[in-house]
Lab assay of single mutants.
Amino acid sequence: SPEVQIAILTEQINNLNEHLRVHKKDHHSRRGLLKMVGKRRRLLAYLRNKDVARYREIVEKLG
């Protein structure tokens, strides 16, 4: 489901952010981070168009 995919991506994004705080010059990982953020944004847009209630619920849960 989109909610699960968004939750997994959010966790991976948070982990990668911590990694990049330590390894500032790791541009390869930064590119992966940007791809993940874009994918999460697309999934959220899809969910917002399909079911606003589910969209609001996941945004509330994940912050």
Rank of each mutant, 00 (worst) to 15 (best):
L9H: 01
N49C: 13
G32M: 15
M36R: 06
K61M: 13
R54Q: 06
R42E: 12
R41A: 14
E18C: 09
L47E: 00
H28Y: 07
I6S: 00
E60N: 09
T10G: 01
H19N: 03
N14A: 07
R54M: 10
H19G: 03
L62A: 03
R41F: 09
R21V: 04
A45H: 10
L33F: 04
L43E: 00
P2S: 05
L62V: 03
K35W: 13
K35C: 10
E11R: 08
K61T: 11
M36E: 02
E3Y: 06
E18P: 01
R40T: 02
G32A: 15
D51T: 01
E11T: 08
L9D: 00
V52A: 11
K35T: 08
R41K: 09
N15E: 12
Y55I: 02
R21T: 06
L43A: 02
I8P: 01
K35N: 09
K24Q: 11
H27F: 14
R31D: 09
A45R: 08
K24W: 10
K24D: 07
H27P: 08
H19S: 05
E3L: 06
K24V: 11
R31P: 04
E11Y: 08
D26C: 06
A7Y: 15
I6N: 00
R42I: 10
A7N: 06
K35D: 09
L20P: 01
L33T: 01
E11W: 09
N49Y: 09
V59R: 03
L20G: 02
Y55N: 02
H28F: 07
V52Y: 15
R30M: 11
V22K: 12
R56C: 13
K50I: 15
Y55R: 00
E60T: 06
R41G: 09
K25P: 04
V37E: 07
D51S: 04
S29R: 07
V4N: 12
A7I: 14
T10A: 02
I58K: 00
H23W: 06
H27I: 12
L44P: 00
L20N: 03
A45Q: 12
H27Q: 11
H27W: 13
R42N: 05
V52E: 15
S1H: 07
K25M: 11
D51R: 01
V37W: 07
N17H: 13
I58V: 09
V4P: 02
L47A: 00
L43T: 00
K39G: 02
N14C: 09
I58S: 04
V52R: 10
E18S: 08
L9I: 04
A45D: 10
A53G: 09
R42G: 05
G38C: 14
K24H: 07
R30A: 07
S1Y: 15
G38I: 14
A53H: 12
V4C: 14
L16D: 01
E60W: 06
K50R: 10
L20V: 04
G38M: 15
K35E: 13
L62C: 08
A53W: 05
V37T: 04
L47G: 00
K39P: 00
E60G: 09
L33Y: 08
H28A: 14
A7R: 08
E3W: 07
G32S: 14
Q5W: 10
N15L: 13
K61W: 15
R48W: 10
Q12K: 14
G32H: 15
V4I: 11
L20S: 01
K25W: 15
R30V: 09
